[in-house]
Amino acid sequence: MDLIIVGAGGHGRCCLDIAREIYDDIVFLDDGLVGKTINDCKVIGGMKDIQVLREKYSNIFIAIGNNKLREELITQAQEIGFNIVNLISNKSIISNYAKIGQGCVIFPNVVIEPNSTIGDGCVICANSVINHDAFIADYSLVNSSSVIRPTALLNKYSHIGCRCLIGKEIEEASSIEDGKVVI
């Protein structure tokens, strides 16, 4: 199966490792790295090439850490007709009763418990735990080793740092620093 990953920076390279669990024909798009090979994967163009590449590729993943830019690029790819995929590590544990939107990446050692919801375009980094009944709204990012407690609500564009404990509602577009406890 084919896949374009948009973004060949650090986040894109991490997503590539998960993509290799599923896809065998993977290329990058990255305006700043066109013509390079990153981790044995070719950067075949930039964003200006996305429309023409739809003829050859059907699946796309937007590996951009900026929440709002990720939303813009996912919307653009949808309008072109790409299938927006999830990249979910086979080393994660996800309840059959959890809901996950499209365009999400779930890194290794993540636990997503029953009746939790992950919106579209979310990034859940390694070793994080999303407890039961938590709600993570669209285009949010939970960094490594954070815990989102039961019934916590992260509103759209939330950015949670590493090693955080979140146990209440987080306002839209909030950025929580590494190591913070918000209960």
Score class of each variant (00 low, 15 high):
Glu169Thr: 12
Leu3Ile: 07
Ser158Phe: 01
Asp138Leu: 03
Asn96Cys: 07
Arg70Met: 08
Lys91Asn: 10
Pro114Arg: 13
Phe61Cys: 02
Ile136Val: 14
Gly9Lys: 05
Gly10Ile: 04
Gln102Glu: 02
Ile38Thr: 07
Lys91Phe: 14
Asn109Tyr: 15
Lys56Tyr: 14
Ile148Tyr: 11
Val181Lys: 15
Arg163Asn: 15
Glu171Tyr: 04
Asn67Val: 07
Leu165Lys: 06
Cys41Thr: 15
Ile112Asn: 05
Asn67Phe: 05
Asn66Thr: 05
Glu171Gly: 11
Tyr57Leu: 03
Gly121Asp: 01
Asp31Glu: 05
Ser140Tyr: 10
Ile93Tyr: 14
Ile50Asn: 08
Gln76Ala: 04
Asn66Phe: 06
Ser92Ile: 04
Ile166Cys: 10
Val52Cys: 08
Phe82Asp: 02
Gly10Glu: 06
Asn67His: 05
Cys122Gly: 10
Gly9Cys: 06
Ile5Trp: 11
Glu169Met: 14
Ala173Asp: 13
Ile64Thr: 05
Asn39Ile: 01
Cys164Gln: 09
Arg13Cys: 15
Glu55Ser: 14
Leu141Glu: 09
Ser116Gly: 03
Arg20Gln: 13
Thr37Ile: 13
Tyr57His: 10
Gly12Phe: 09
Val34Phe: 09
Asn127Phe: 07
Asp31Phe: 10
Cys14Gly: 05
Lys180Phe: 09
Cys125Gln: 11
Tyr23His: 13
Thr75Trp: 00
Met47Cys: 08
His159Arg: 10
Ile50Arg: 06
Ile124Phe: 09
Ile106Gly: 01
Thr75Ser: 12
Gly45Asp: 05
Lys180Met: 14
Ser128Ala: 12
Lys168Pro: 01
His11Ser: 06
Ile118His: 01
Leu53Ala: 10
Ala126Cys: 11
Gly161Arg: 08
Gly12Gln: 06
